[in-house]
């Protein structure tokens, strides 16, 4: 009886751990509205870093840290933004039956169009330039 209880407990714990580890990978774990709100909150800080040339907009649709002067908090901010972007790209890729890479590269073109003057931008060949 004791052994059975132990087995059930272990199985339940493993199931819970499994659920929580997969949740962040799915877009529906976080609502689209929540992602948008997070992006909106990060925008002012990211804009500052872009204006200083510390980060830039890569050709894959993700932010890239360009200077070593970036603080750990700056890096964390970029990672959080990129993680949210990836969730959106993944969801769109799944919906349209294409790849995350294609969605990211299409988004990069849109970002480059709306980027503020002075933002570092990576072209399709991989070269960086100031807009």
């Amino acid at each position: 009886m004791k052994k059975m209880c132990q087995t059930v407990f272990i199985a339940a714990a493993a199931g819970l751990i499994g659920c929580f580890s997969f949740l962040p990978c799915e877009l529906h774990a976080q609502s689209a509205q929540q992602i948008k709100a997070n992006m909106k909150n990060r925008a002012p800080a990211l804009d500052k870093l872009k204006a200083q040339g510390i980060i830039g907009e890569g050709n894959t649709g993700f932010l890239v840290v360009l200077q070593k002067t970036a603080s750990p908090d700056d890096v964390k901010l970029v990672e959080a933004e990129n993680a949210d972007r990836k969730l959106v790209y993944k969801a769109i890729a799944k919906k349209e039956g294409t790849t995350v890479e294609l969605v990211g590269s299409r988004r990069a073109l849109q970002i480059h169009e709306i980027a503020k003057a002075g933002t570092m931008i990576q072209d399709e060949k991989g070269a960086w330039s100031k807009k």
Partner: peptide
């Protein structure tokens, strides 16, 4: 596919991009 993806991206990021511009 590019048109569809662009549309989907605009649907999601549209208001954020508008705020940015």
């Amino acid at each position: 596919i590019n048109v569809k993806v662009d549309k989907a991206l605009e649907d999601f990021f549209g208001d954020l991009d508008d705020a940015e511009t």
